[in-house]
Design a protein around this nucleic acid. Structure first.
Lengths: 337, 337
DNA sequence: TTGTACGCGTTATCAA
DNA sequence: TTGATAACGCGTACAA
């Protein structure tokens, strides 16, 4: 395992006694090379362990076959799923993915966008961080092609792939209303995040049309924060009998708190979540949740990007909205088995 | 959002009426530039929106400040956690991460290693795919610095960061023995995977020293496969009364199957898992599990790599083994609250 | 079919 | 303090 000192076209050419261009032809499988020559060059290539320098190619060809992928945090299963789907599509197009985790911080996002620009990624897939719109229009002039997913890209017109956050939340809330709950609480992520606002709005619509009081907390986007908020809600004079959790982490926080408080789900309190993960579906309470088409979200975003990159699509930026689905299991109070 | 046509050192130099090298000096904050000159150049740089081309720098400087990260699958929370930790360390050292998902396939791994080599990554962090050792010695000659994690790198001597798989599994099995179980089953991942073999071995040691029959199934590394295997085990004449699951996905499969079979955990059957995720800890049964120091694993692997890359460590390759810990909750039959 | 020469955008050497 | 020029490794245009 010795670092550096890799063979170059030069080395191969010298060793094979041919010109550098001939080697280049062989490497790129160009037609006009005699079989004998191919054989001779190939032998030297494998003997020297020559590997083309993709940096030089990129510099020359003005494209890197690399895309940037910016998310808040890979360890969030939602983003991990997106990540996986995007990676698969990128690979199938011969692209590599540079992963960036903004931690939901606009300043980090900005730095990463700069980094990716300097690395000359051909495209950028991102779930824009909360509150970052101010810098975006500046930073992406003459930059890579951009497709936003999960959230729209505020600050410039780009393609975006979203889901029906509002409808999903409304439907979930209405489902709880259908179970005769009158004190239904909504816990959501940071209000600067698009999805959190949309889901809150859907919840509100449902409460309003049912004539119920909206009881909500935003900024509870971690397990710990959700636990704290749930605790507070439980201490109300007239505490909620049902909880709508704005994402997977919040769901975990709510459930953990209810468990600690000795409340049974759905016996004492009903719970509906947003996001539905394989791992959780194995455990009880069996969670009723708004399922996002996560894989699809990543896949479509990536495909949109490559349609742009490969010139198959040059229409104006557009938004694609994928449907969510309420998956009914036991935690809402329904008796399904 | 216009692609291509980015400003270069040339452009800035021309616009500022100075030489290209002077601009380069300013960009790189070299000392020997007069303040007046700096001011003049900086103005042009920001006016033209100049961003250094990292490709050209890398080509010239013979290092890319990029590392490859190869795992089986990001959507596995274990790898996602590793990924996150590695990413954090890499960022703090000014490196970017190129993510590769081998899907546990040796041939894909081989291709990705080639890809990363051609992209001239400075280093490679990987959880080697099952059964890939045959190609590795060949592919990494004169390649990047390598650190393996989760599993050793078979086929060449490299640094590796591992955990005490065998001890962890043995301890878990012994715990179940302590609960008076005599029919204890082990479900593990593909036997070609190092961790699966080690955990099986630990389980076997415990069974042997307790004089119990070893009941095990390998190759159950997905939720579906684990469900099938669990079903089969339950149909034995003398079915297991306790299950030791070899990883997080297997745990999910086992629990789901037991639930479907109407068996209560830990009332009817005891379960101990390997891997402990935040999300799962919110649900019931509260899982007793062998906790891996996942974040630490990723962090240490990355730190080892950068110690090598930055010349702080040139000792022979070494293996670092981190301790696992049995986290006792309810699913094993212990009464903890 | 094969080879020569130039340029991609940098940094490094050396001279001015 | 500043600038001209040569690499870095490759692909393209054009010639032979």
């Amino acid at each position: 395992m010795h670092r550096g000192a890799r063979a170059t076209l030069q080395d191969v050419a010298r060793e094979a006694g041919v010109s550098i261009k001939t080697v280049s032809r062989v490497v790129n499988h160009e037609r006009s090379v005699s079989p004998a020559m191919v054989e001779r060059v190939v032998e030297v290539i494998s003997r020297l362990g020559y590997q083309p320098n993709e940096l030089a190619r990129s510099l020359r060809g003005n494209r890197t076959r690399t895309v940037g992928l910016m998310i808040a945090d890979v360890s969030n299963p939602f983003f991990a799923e997106c990540c996986k789907a995007i990676d698969e599509v990128a690979r199938s197009h011969g692209y590599s993915v540079i992963l960036c985790a903004s931690a939901e911080d606009a300043e980090s996002e900005r730095e990463y966008i700069g980094l990716l620009t300097r690395r000359r990624v051909d495209g950028l897939l991102l779930a824009p961080a909360a509150g970052g719109q101010s810098h975006r229009e500046l930073d992406l002039v003459a930059g890579p092609a951009v497709v936003a997913f999960d959230r729209p890209f505020e600050g410039a017109e780009t393609d975006a792939v979203l889901v029906t956050n509002r409808d999903g939340a409304r439907e979930a809330a209405e489902h709880l209303v259908g179970h005769r709950h009158r004190r239904i609480a909504f816990l959501g992520d940071d209000g600067r995040i698009y999805t959190a606002r949309e889901r809150l709005e859907g919840y509100r619509e449902a409460m309003e049309s049912s004539g119920l009081e909206a009881i909500h907390r935003l900024g509870t986007g971690s397990i710990a924060a959700a636990e704290k908020a749930t605790d507070e809600l439980l201490e109300m004079q007239d505490p909620p009998t049902a909880f709508l959790a704005g994402n997977g982490l919040i769901t975990a926080g709510v459930l953990r708190t209810l468990d600690r408080a000795g409340l049974r789900v759905p016996g004492d309190v009903a719970v509906v979540g947003f996001d539905d993960f394989d791992l959780m579906s194995a455990l009880s309470p069996r969670l009723t949740a708004v399922r996002q088409p996560t894989r699809e979200l990543g896949r479509r975003a990536a495909e949109l990007l490559f349609d742009r990159l490969e010139g198959r699509d040059s229409s104006p930026p557009r938004h694609l909205v994928l449907p969510t689905e309420l998956v009914v299991r036991g935690s809402c109070g329904c008796d399904v088995r």
